[in-house]
């Protein structure tokens, strides 16, 4: 098969697999949250509610698409797509097994982090284009939050990079053949905690969901969205969380490493990503929401200096342990 055909088919497969996973992850989260709250969760559509995501998707597709009169139409209509593209693009560099991925760039992790920060453009467009005061406040919060938490997120993600000595994601995964980075003494655990906290914050999940903040801002930047546009925003948000969960599993849990034959690799990777995702979900359903000024203080006064010190400390350890330096 010529190379360009492969480059067309591989993204198509990955994109559809991601869409399927994202759809069903909503069910996983709802079931998990229901267990935490001593409920049953979705149960009616299909056995154990297994068809619920499909029913939801059909419902959202059939909803009327309302555009506010005062909205800035081009910006308003474009925002969900601008939001969705970076959320899907982050999967491009993730290798799901040795040699199995869309593009194994030599700057894979930089690509991931850079693209993942671009979701803010879509968020702000949605908040601004809706011409709604709640949405506008939410958009302003979004800028605050993403800027403050992307830095600790990047610093925490760079710790495994230093330990592995490569920016290529498959190299980082391969470097954990002996020891998963989450078990690396002290540094690994601290970096993982920082990674989880900044993931929760950078993905706008509760307790940092001040963008959505439905008890203050009703639904934040997507308050005016309905039907399929709402679904696309929702899809993008979940895709982003799943992407970050895959990254977490790759950076700290050795990606596809696990017992069993080689074809089990992607399955192990998916399971580990789901563990990271459930960890984020667990945090989400246990905390009350933090206020915007407290959130900024937490990032700039605590998390950012801490991750920076951790990064420098890791660098020192790596240099110290490298023979011949």
């Amino acid at each position: 098969m010529p190379g360009w055909v492969v480059s067309l088919i591989a993204p198509f497969i990955v994109l559809n697999a991601i869409l399927g996973i994202v759809t069903y992850v909503t069910l996983l989260e709802r079931k998990f949250a229901a267990r935490m709250q001593s409920r049953v969760g979705p149960y009616r559509v299909g056995p154990h509610g297994l068809l619920q995501p499909i029913a939801d998707a059909i419902k959202l597709m059939m909803k009327e698409d309302v555009v506010p009169d005062a909205a800035d139409r081009p910006v308003y209509n474009l925002a969900p797509i601008v939001f969705l593209i970076p959320c899907m693009l982050i999967f491009a560099t993730i290798p799901f097994a040795p040699g199995l991925g869309v593009a194994d760039l030599n700057i894979g992790i930089l690509f991931f982090l850079a693209v993942s920060a671009m979701e803010i453009v879509g968020l702000f467009m949605a908040g601004w284009g809706s011409n709604n005061k709640y949405a506008l406040l939410s958009a302003m919060r979004a800028v605050n939050q993403v800027i403050s938490y992307d830095l600790p997120f990047i610093f925490a993600a760079l710790v495994p990079v230093l330990l592995a000595g490569s920016l290529r994601l498959s190299d980082i995964a391969a470097a954990q053949a002996g020891l998963w980075f989450v078990f690396y003494p002290v540094i690994g655990q601290l970096a993982f905690v920082a990674f989880i906290v900044s993931t929760v914050a950078a993905e706008n999940r509760a307790p940092f969901d001040i963008l959505e903040a439905e008890s203050e801002l009703v639904a934040g930047f997507r308050v005016e969205y309905s039907g399929m546009k709402f679904a696309i925003i929702q899809l993008g948000e979940y895709a982003h969380v799943i992407g970050a969960s895959f990254l977490g599993a790759l950076l700290f849990f050795g990606a596809w490493a696990g017992p069993g034959p080689e074809w089990m690799g992607p399955i192990w990777f998916l399971l580990k990503a789901m563990v990271v995702f459930l960890l984020v979900t667990w945090v989400r359903w246990s905390f009350v929401r933090i206020r915007v000024d407290q959130m900024l203080a937490l990032s700039w006064k605590a998390l950012l200096p801490a991750t920076l010190v951790l990064l420098i400390g890791t660098a020192v350890v790596v240099v110290w342990r490298t023979p011949g330096v």
Binding site: E212, A213, S215, R284, W285, F287, V288, R289
Partner: peptide
């Protein structure tokens, strides 16, 4: 009250349901 502070899609809902 916890629902107000924690949101229907967050920890507040957990306290509320309990």
């Amino acid at each position: 009250w916890c629902l107000d502070m924690g949101g229907a899609l967050g920890g507040g809902a957990t306290v509320f349901l309990y």
